[in-house]
């Protein structure tokens, strides 16, 4: 499973694309929990959303290894 990182998420993970091998989080909520455990700095920033296949995803959305997954920190375009 690959997870794209942008903005401050890219700084926290020191990567633009995380790779998770083995036991992958089964849904969006598990992924958020996994990220906060692995990178505690996520606890100190505003809440990030998760996008699955380029759509914002609720906590209950299931994740599959082939999905395009991204961490979406608070946006600030414009």
């Amino acid at each position: 499973m690959e997870i794209k990182c942008f903005g401050i998420a890219k700084e926290i993970t020191a990567s633009s694309s995380l790779k998770i091998d083995g036991a992958i989080p089964g849904d969006v909520k598990s992924l958020k929990e996994w990220l906060k455990l692995k990178y505690p700095a996520f606890n100190n920033i505003n809440n990030c959303l998760i996008a699955v296949n380029q759509e914002y995803a609720e906590d209950t959305v299931a994740l599959y290894p082939t999905d395009e997954i991204a961490i979406i920190p608070p946006v600030s375009g414009g």
Partner: peptide, 13 residues
Amino acid sequence: IAALKERVPIWKK
């Protein structure tokens, strides 16, 4: 412009 600022995944440093 309001919707863009609210939900489009673009970030400003």
